[in-house]
Amino acid sequence: MTFSNDKLHRLLEMVAEAKEDLMDCDGCLEHIAHYAEVHLQGLSPREKFAEVKLHLQSCPCCKDEFEYFMQAMQTLDLE
């Protein structure tokens, strides 16, 4: 297996930023709706949200989905 220097560079960034994440993608989906509502209402986050936030920082798939989700949230009536 060979790695180009470009790839090693990106991997080193990922390694340097790595944090212990106790959540997985299913766990993230379970809490993301609540997280998004709190996020939009600017309320103070609870401790569970620290885990969601950490997962979003560590997981490119969930982060990607969260961005689309926030767009979709604009069509929901949150009253």
Binding site: L29, M73, L78
Partner: peptide, 11 residues
């Protein structure tokens, strides 16, 4: 925990 429609939209 969230509104139902928010939960459904996440899915």
């Amino acid at each position: 925990r969230s509104r139902f429609t928010t939960w459904a939209m996440a899915i």
